[in-house]
């Protein structure tokens, strides 16, 4: 996008726009993050002494199978969410512009409802759905004759990570959807009108107009999706507690457990920083990929 050279601003003006935000943000986010990095270089376990041990915590972390297991879980959740939630949200956004869908207003409104629910409620509801003997899902499977598909959805270590991803996708579908819809409403109507005159229909409209025009927004939403899924914690905690065993453990839970369970604050900080570096790496990769315009 053009940043016209005729738009100029003084140094002071720029400072005025940026400084307050940067100041607050630095004080509350960056300084503690730096402190956390410092802790990660020590053997601190919550007591009065912190011994500097260099990068030993990090070399432990690199060989910590539980950390990488949690990382893998995060990646599964992220990949599924990116693919399913994003495409659903984009699909629904374009559908909301089409004439085939009835009761648009209703759908648009209620799809956001789950977003306001707390993790506890979502955990509860999905337990009712997944419950082995009394769950809604298994009753449906039974009634349509798919007994063989019945599983202890939250108790089987092989599928539990997928079982906990579904509620996440469902609950937060409303957010990308809302952002997309707001972006689409920013596209001037006459662009669509002139396109329709050229015989452009639904799919083409979505592919050649909506998609490129909200491409920047999509990038932001993907960023948001990456960040929220790398940090995901409480929902899974409520549904399974990270179990069975550690099968549905994610990085944030692992960081929390090391820091606040056993007060290994040095190592816990290393986990936190490790998580942060990995997430940042993923964002960088994504940014590189996104530069190739579709």
């Amino acid at each position: 996008m053009s940043r016209s050279s005729s738009l100029k601003i003084t140094r002071v003006g720029l400072l005025g726009l940026l400084a307050p935000s940067v100041a607050i943000y630095t004080f509350v986010i960056i300084v503690p993050l730096a402190l956390s990095f410092y802790y990660s270089l020590t053997d601190w376990v919550g007591g009065p002494t912190k011994n500097y041990i260099g990068f030993r915590n990090y070399s432990l972390l690199v060989h910590d199978s539980l950390f990488w297991h949690s990382f893998k879980n995060n990646m599964i959740i992220l990949a599924l969410t990116l693919i399913i939630q994003m495409s659903l949200a984009f699909l629904l956004t374009t559908l909301f512009m089409s004439k085939a869908l009835r009761l648009k207003e209703l759908h648009r409104t209620v799809i956001f409802f789950p977003v306001v629910l707390s993790a506890v409620v979502v955990g509860f509801v999905w337990q009712m759905i997944y419950s082995h003997d009394y769950g809604i899902l298994n009753s449906i499977l039974r009634s349509i004759g798919l007994e063989s598909a019945i599983r202890p959805w939250l108790d089987d270590p092989k599928i539990v990570i997928y079982s906990v991803t579904v509620p996440l996708i469902w609950q937060y579908l409303g957010i990308p959807l809302m952002i997309f819809v707001s972006a689409v409403h920013g596209i001037p109507k006459d662009i669509y009108e002139s396109c329709e005159l050229d015989g452009c229909t639904g799919f083409k409209k979505a592919r050649y107009i909506t998609f490129p025009l909200i491409y920047d927004t999509i990038k932001v939403v993907v960023m948001l999706c990456i960040s929220s899924n790398m940090l995901v914690f409480s929902h899974i905690y409520v549904m399974t507690g990270g179990g069975p065993g550690t099968s549905s453990m994610v990085m944030a839970q692992y960081a929390y457990k090391t820091s606040f369970g056993s007060m290994q604050l040095g190592y816990g900080s290393a986990v936190t920083i490790g998580m942060f570096v990995i997430s940042f790496g993923i964002v960088l990769i994504f940014k590189r990929l996104a530069e190739v315009r579709v």
Binding site: Y25, I29, S227, M230, T272, I273, V283
Partner: peptide, 10 residues
């Protein structure tokens, strides 16, 4: 950066 930090770490 701020979107990628686990709050419990802070």
């Amino acid at each position: 950066v701020g979107m990628l930090i686990p709050v419990y770490g802070l």
